[in-house]
Design a protein around this nucleic acid. Structure first.
Length: 485
RNA sequence: GGGGGCGUAGCUCAGUCGGUAGAGCAUCGGCCUUUUAAGCCGCUGGUCGCAGGUUCGAGUCCUGCCGCCCUCACCA
C-alpha cells in the first residue's frame, strides 16, 4: 500500500468511528451560517478584551480545517471559508459528548460550530465552540500548510486543491467575476441587451481559425464549435436588435501558450449607427468600470511594467506604426517584401496584404506596451469590415494592444451584401486560415438590410490577466486544457 | 514542430566526485486548557516520471519515451 493509500485508509477508519459515535461524517444541511468575514467585522465592533468571551454574542460558522493546534483537552482550529480564516477554540469541557468526535478531525475536514465570540490571551478573535457538527470528512491530506501547493501541473490538474490551499488564487477568480460583471454592467448601462447565439454552428465564421468539429446524431450533420459569434450577432442587427452583446465561449483548434487556450471567453458586441470610434470608447469604458470595481487605480503593475489605463488610450494609425518600426510604407509593396526577406519571413506566393500584416506583427506589436488602439488595417485581411471612404485598400478596423498582446478587435461593420459576398469569394494566397468562409444565409440577412454599425470583441481572459497581473492565461482560467493522464 | 528547464515520501525541498535514499510539514503513538506554521518525545513512510544502456555499483552518466513549465515558430 502506498503512503497516500495508507493516509486515505486512516481517514476512512476515522469516518467509520464517527458513524459508531452516531455522527454522519458527510453532514447535511446546515442553516444560518455566518461567513468568517462578517464575524471578523463584528469582532472589531465588539471591542473585545483579550481573554474575554462575550456571553450572548453568538455565531455559527462553517468551513474547512486548514490548521490544527492540539493541546490535550483544548484544540485550536483555523477554519477557512470563502471569505477567509477564523480561529475556533474547542475544549473538552465545553463540548462534553462531542469531544470524542473532535479527536477524529483531520486537516481538510469541513466542520461547523456554534459558540460565543471571544479573544484569546494573545488577542486572536476566536469562536469558542459549545456545539459541533461534522460536515465532511476529507480522505486526502491538504498540501503542506506553509508552502501550499506549488507544483504547477498539480495546481492545474487539481485546481480544487489549488483553490483552497492557495488563497491568492481564489482571489484572482473572484476578481475575474468582478471584471466580467463590470463589463456586463457597463454595456447594460449603454442600453445593450445580453443575448445567446449558437455555439454549435453548421458554418463557422467571424474569425480566422481552425474549428473543432463535431457531429449531431439525429440530424446526421457535421457541426463546428464556434470560433466566433460574429455572424449571428450581426443577424440580430438585421432583426432590429440595435445594441446586443454576448459573453461567448469560443473554441479554436490551435496551439496553447501563455496567451492562448483552445477555449476562451470573449465579450462581443454590436451597436447600430455606431462605428469603430465608438467601439474604442466602449473598450475604454468597460475597462474603466472594471478597474473602478477592483481598486480604482488606472496605473497598474504588470510584470516588470506599469500600465496606464487612463482614458483616452493612445490611438495610432497602422501605416504610421509600420513606417515607424519597420521603416517601410504600407503602399510600397516592394519595400515591404524586402523588409519581409530581411526578417526571414517566407513571403513567396503570399498576397501583399498578408505580407504587410506579417511584417507588422513581427516589427510593431511587441512595442505596443501601453494601451493602444491601432486603426486602419489593410483591407484585404479584413473581409467583414467596411472600407475607408477615401481608400478602398484600407479597412475601418482597429485592434487594441496592451503589453504587446492583442486585447480586442473592432470594425466599422461592412453592411453592403454585394461587397461582403465578393469578399467571401476571394481567398487570399498565403493564408492558412481565413475569415472568408461563404455563409449564404448571412449574405441573405445583409440583403434584408443591416444598419451601419460598430462591432467589437474583447478577450476577457486577457483582460483579466492584465488587470490581475497574471502572467499566464492558465492563471485566469479555472480548468485550462491539459493533456489527460 | 525547434531550443531550454523541470520530474526524489501525501506536500515543500536537499541529495557533493557514480558508492547503504535524506530533512521539514502531514500521518501514527505519547505529554499538554490560550496556541498562532504551537511545542516536546518517539515511530512510520520511497517503482528517485517510465523503459533501456554503460558500470563491480546509477537518484546521479548515456539513449528513447511520457508529463509539465518557459521560449521560438505556427495561430488573431
Amino acid at each position: 500500500m502506498s503512503t497516500e493509500e495508507k493516509l486515505t485508509e486512516e481517514r476512512l477508519a476515522k469516518a467509520e468511528k464517527l458513524r459508531e459515535l452516531g455522527v454522519d461524517p458527510y453532514g447535511g444541511r446546515y442553516d444560518d451560517v455566518t461567513r468568517t468575514a462578517t464575524v471578523r467585522k463584528r469582532g472589531e465592533t465588539l471591542k473585545l478584551e483579550a481573554g474575554a468571551m462575550v456571553e450572548g454574542e453568538r455565531a455559527r460558522v462553517a468551513g474547512r480545517i486548514v490548521l490544527q493546534r492540539v493541546m490535550g483537552n483544548l484544540v485550536f482550529l483555523t477554519v477557512r471559508d470563502g471569505t477567509g480564516d477564523l480561529q475556533f477554540g474547542l475544549s473538552k469541557k465545553a463540548l462534553r459528548d462531542d469531544w470524542p468526535a473532535i479527536k477524529l478531525l483531520d486537516l481538510g475536514d469541513f466542520i461547523g460550530c456554534d459558540g460565543c465570540l471571544g479573544k484569546t490571551k494573545t488577542g486572536e478573535l476566536t469562536l469558542w465552540a459549545d456545539s459541533f457538527t461534522m460536515l465532511c470528512k476529507a480522505l486526502h491530506p491538504p498540501p503542506a500548510k506553509w508552502h501550499g501547493l506549488k507544483d504547477v501541473e498539480l495546481r492545474y490538474r487539481h485546481r480544487y486543491v489549488d483553490l483552497f490551499a492557495n488563497p491568492p488564487v481564489r482571489e484572482v477568480f473572484r476578481q475575474r467575476s468582478t471584471i466580467i460583471q463590470a463589463v456586463r454592467d457597463y454595456l447594460i448601462r449603454c442600453d445593450y441587451i445580453e443575448v445567446e447565439t449558437p455555439a454549435l454552428q453548421p458554418i463557422y465564421g467571424g474569425a480566422a481559425a481552425r474549428p473543432f468539429t463535431t457531429h449531431h446524431n439525429t440530424l446526421d450533420i457535421e457541426l463546428f464549435l464556434r470560433i466566433s459569434p460574429e455572424l449571428y450577432l450581426k443577424r440580430l442587427l438585421v432583426g432590429g436588435m440595435e445594441r446586443v452583446f454576448e459573453v461567448s465561449r469560443n473554441f479554436r483548434n490551435e496551439g496553447l501558450s501563455t496567451k492562448h487556450n483552445p477555449e476562451f471567453t470573449m465579450v462581443e458586441l454590436y451597436e447600430a449607427y455606431a462605428d469603430y470610434n465608438v467601439m474604442m470608447e466602449r473598450v475604454e469604458g468597460m475597462t474603466a468600470l472594471a478597474i473602478e470595481r477592483l481598486d480604482g487605480n488606472p496605473k497598474r503593475p504588470y510584470g516588470e511594467v506599469v500600465l496606464d489605463y487612463s482614458v483616452p488610450w493612445s490611438r495610432r494609425k497602422y501605416s504610421d506604426l509600420l513606417e515607424e518600426y519597420a521603416g517601410v510604407s504600407m503602399a510600397d509593396v516592394a519595400a515591404v517584401r524586402r523588409k519581409a526577406s530581411e526578417l526571414s519571413i517566407d513571403h513567396a506566393g503570399k498576397d501583399d496584404a498578408v505580407v504587410v500584416n506579417e511584417v507588422f506583427e513581427r516589427t510593431v506589436e511587441h512595442h505596443l506596451i501601453q494601451p493602444t488602439f491601432v486603426y486602419d488595417y489593410p483591407a484585404a485581411v479584413c473581409p467583414l469590415t467596411r472600407r475607408h471612404p477615401e481608400d478602398p485598400n484600407i479597412a475601418l478596423r482597429f485592434e487594441a494592444f496592451v503589453n504587446g498582446m492583442e486585447l480586442g478587435n473592432a470594425y466599422t461593420e461592412l453592411n453592403d451584401p454585394r461587397v461582403q459576398e465578393a469578399n467571401f469569394k476571394r481567398q487570399l494566397a498565403g493564408e492558412n486560415e481565413t475569415m472568408a468562409v461563404m455563409d449564404e444565409d448571412f449574405i441573405l440577412a445583409l440583403e434584408y438590410g443591416m444598419p451601419p454599425a460598430g462591432g467589437l470583441g474583447v478577450g476577457l481572459d486577457r483582460l483579466v490577466m492584465l488587470l490581475t497581473n497574471s502572467a499566464s492565461i492558465r492563471d485566469v482560467i479555472l480548468f485550462p486544457l491539459q493533456r489527460p493522464r
